[in-house]
Design a protein around this nucleic acid. Structure first.
Lengths: 99, 99
DNA sequence: TTTTATTGCTTTGTGTTACAAAGTGCTTTT
DNA sequence: AAAAGCACTTTGTAACACAAAGCAATAAAA
């Protein structure tokens, strides 16, 4: 038997960061409030997790406007895509070995 | 877009508990030291996570002997199997929606 | 028979993380 | 002028992770 968790990425252990990454993999760009409603977190909490992902170089931030309102969108980086895909592969293998 | 993480089980957010459950789903019974080597945790840490799973009624404990040495084995309960499968299904759906 | 090892914990201590709530600065709408 | 929205930051608290050490019971080794 092999260690079933050795290839999992610790950054993605957090359900909220998992949710953020998942949303950003499906939609190329998602803004702050969309994420907030989707994941159902407080804005402070969301900002913290976004920062963690940013510090790990997994997502990047674009600050812009929609009409005259500020609008911050987030998207995955190449590194983030790679790391997340590896994580999902590790999860898939784990799941397959069970069922 | 739907919340990608709403059906994930918080008990299984922890990589170690995920590993324990995974090991117990594959092997009907696993003992303390096997788990310890497999997951690569200290015994104190392992005991704590096992206790959490036990308190959630997801695993059960059998105390016995191998030869003349004490031997504690762990196995999943019906509830544990159900909860874990639901968690894996939620993960799979998340993965599929991405790739 | 004294010592050492093994098993499966519990306890202790420390550091990290999660999170809500409140506060902030800037802009925009009313 | 006041209220609201956006995207945070700060603060405080509680939960969690983890290693290391301690411990009780038995067993094996010297």
């Amino acid at each position: 038997m092999k260690n079933p968790i050795e290839h999992l990425n610790k950054v993605f252990d957090s359900r909220i960061r998992l949710g953020i990454m998942s949303a950003l993999m499906i939609n190329a760009e998602v803004n702050f409030n969309e994420l907030k409603e989707l994941i159902e977190v407080t804005d402070g909490n969301l900002a913290t997790h976004l920062k963690t992902l940013e510090e790990n170089n997994y997502i990047k931030v674009q600050k812009g406007f929609v009409g005259r309102k500020t609008n911050t969108t987030y998207s995955v980086t190449k590194a983030g895509e790679k790391a997340f895909k590896l994580h999902l592969e590790a999860l898939e293998k784990m799941i397959k070995s069970i069922s």
